[in-house]
């Protein structure tokens, strides 16, 4: 474990806290993409199957938190706060994201075992899972400030994994090319959001697309 990965996981927890806090205090899930939230549950369920055969206090705790919280968010969006969910602006075609990740998982896993193929699927799916959310913000042209903090923290989590991978490569020749390639793509997909977030939200202005 290193400081970069610890900070990344912390940002991941923070993003989940911000999201649930926003939904429970405003009693609304407006501006949140249900499709992205559903993709995240799929990412965690397909990646953390090893909960059943490996145990590490830190990793297992986090995996349970991520699976549990993403299921809880979906419950909130389909249950109490369903009236505030507008599916007409959540229109990204996730079948292409799932299909693309599945093809890459079948073509280039580290090993052709069910666990490895599902893990690879999860890595590729996570790299694009934010697209429905970013697409929704693009379509509405703006986002609540709290929602932009959520997206920022979520983007920062995987962005911090990049120095973690560099650190691990330099100190222990640990090398996971699939995670690195997908992690870089994931972070690049946030780049225009990061730019607007930095130039607008951090200057105290509302998040509005030009």
């Amino acid at each position: 474990m290193n400081i970069f990965r610890l900070a990344g996981d912390l940002f991941h927890l923070i993003s989940i806290f911000i999201l649930i806090h926003k939904m429970t205090t405003s009693k609304s899930c407006s501006g949140i993409s249900f499709k992205s939230q559903a993709l995240y549950l799929l990412v965690y369920v397909t990646r953390y199957l090893d909960l059943f055969w490996t145990f590490a206090l830190y990793n297992s705790t986090m995996k349970i938190i991520f699976i549990g919280s993403s299921a809880y968010v979906l419950h909130l969006m389909t249950g109490p706060f369903k009236p505030t969910h507008d599916p007409n602006i959540d229109t990204f075609k996730v079948r292409y994201l799932i299909g693309g990740a599945a093809i890459l998982a079948l073509l280039f896993p580290y090993k052709w075992t069910p666990a490895e193929v599902l893990w690879t699927f999860s890595i590729w799916l996570e790299s694009v899972a934010i697209l429905p959310q970013l697409f929704m913000v693009q379509r509405t042209g703006a986002a609540e400030t709290i929602t932009t903090h959520y997206i920022f923290a979520l983007g920062a989590y995987r962005a911090l994994y990049i120095p973690n991978w560099i650190y691990r490569y330099l100190t222990s020749t640990f090398w996971d090319p699939l995670s690195i390639i997908a992690g870089v793509i994931q972070t690049v997909l946030y780049s225009d959001f990061f730019y607007i977030y930095y130039t607008k939200v951090l200057q105290g202005r509302k998040f509005e697309l030009p």
Binding site: D9, N59, Y110, N164, F174, P177, S179
Partner: peptide, 10 residues
């Protein structure tokens, strides 16, 4: 570097 990943990352 080692390609086999021990899956010790989240």
């Amino acid at each position: 570097g080692e390609k086999d990943t021990p899956k010790d990352e989240l």
